[in-house]
């Protein structure tokens, strides 16, 4: 379902140079470091740089970058509750991975906020995992540049997860038959499946046309120490890690094709009704960059 009955406004996307010009990247990096009020800093237990003022939202740490920053809860809005809800899962890390993209970081963000490339880019992975009538069941919530989308899993995928929960003694942070995606501007997004598995992604800009996507997977159980269930959970974690990487590897060439096309595009681009989350990010960046 769409969250509005009236056409959303046409959004203005950032000019192309913010995607390929080195001096624009430097200016943007400066703004991100000094003008953005809060920025994701890591997870509880991570070693952070001394002297950095961080505040926690559940197990998620955020660095205060401005003295006049709003309260973290106000910055995160309704998604503070969501991050808090998922935080118990963060005690059970089962894997970490990273992939470098030959693309600007904003293209990765646009891609992860894009709700409808499943059938074209992920026809064998994400697309069959969600309900066939996904457009009817998709819920999206927005708060400034942050947003959340929630998908109903297909019946087969939900049943598969039910079996895994039972066999592996998995601990669910919420009883949900959904795939949830929470994005916190500019560089954090958290995916969760069936209220059981949590994947924390971080988008790390390396250069104007190079970005590393890092992700960490969490799969908590009720009975850590149970050898049989632990072995099953390890095996499952390995399988899920391969799936997660496959999805990212499906996204990577598309992001790189956008990077290849971005500099040569002459038109304004077009965001559909379901792409307003992307417009939110562009608006936030335009404000941050004073353009």
């Amino acid at each position: 379902m769409l969250n509005y009955d009236q056409p959303p406004p046409r959004r203005r996307l950032l000019p192309a140079h913010w995607f390929y010009a080195a001096d624009s990247f430097a200016r943007e990096s400066e703004a991100m470091s000094h003008r953005l009020p809060w920025r994701y800093a890591g997870l509880a237990g991570d070693s952070l740089v001394d002297g950095v003022e961080v505040e926690a939202c559940g197990g998620f740490l955020f660095r205060r970058q401005r003295m006049d920053a709003p309260a973290l809860a106000d910055w995160l809005g309704p998604f503070a509750t969501r991050l808090d809800l998922m935080s118990p899962a963060l005690s059970a890390p089962v894997g970490a991975d990273a992939v470098e993209f030959a693309a600007n970081w904003k293209i990765l963000v646009e891609n992860t906020l894009d709700d409808f490339h499943g059938s074209t880019v992920h026809p064998q992975t994400i697309h069959p995992a969600v309900d066939a009538d996904w457009r009817q069941h998709l819920h999206t919530e927005r708060h400034g540049p942050h947003s959340h989308s929630s998908w109903k899993l297909s019946a087969a995928t939900a049943q598969w997860w039910e079996k895994l929960v039972a066999r592996g003694g998995l601990a669910r942070f919420a009883a949900q038959d959904r795939y949830d995606h929470t994005y916190i501007f500019p560089d954090l997004y958290v995916a969760s499946f069936h209220g059981a598995m949590v994947i924390v992604h971080r988008v790390v800009p390396l250069a104007v046309d190079r970005t590393r996507l890092e992700w960490r997977t969490f799969l908590p159980s009720h009975n850590p120490g149970d050898r049989k269930r632990d072995a099953f959970r390890r095996s499952l974690a390995g399988q899920l890690a391969l799936s997660a990487r496959q999805v990212i590897e499906e996204d990577r060439p598309l992001c790189e094709m956008v990077q290849a096309g971005r500099a040569g595009a002459t038109g304004p681009g077009m965001l559909g009704w379901r792409e307003q989350r992307i417009g939110d990010v562009h608006d936030a960046l335009a404000t941050l960059l004073d353009i």
Binding site: E110, D114, T120, L254, V258
Partner: peptide
């Protein structure tokens, strides 16, 4: 370059088929 979200559409040097963007078709 697709007019929608700027993806380069066809990447092989030559081919046969519609002028279709692989991102959102």
């Amino acid at each position: 370059i697709c007019s929608h979200r700027f993806a380069q559409m066809l990447t092989a040097p030559t081919g046969k088929g519609p002028l279709r963007c692989p991102y959102h078709a």
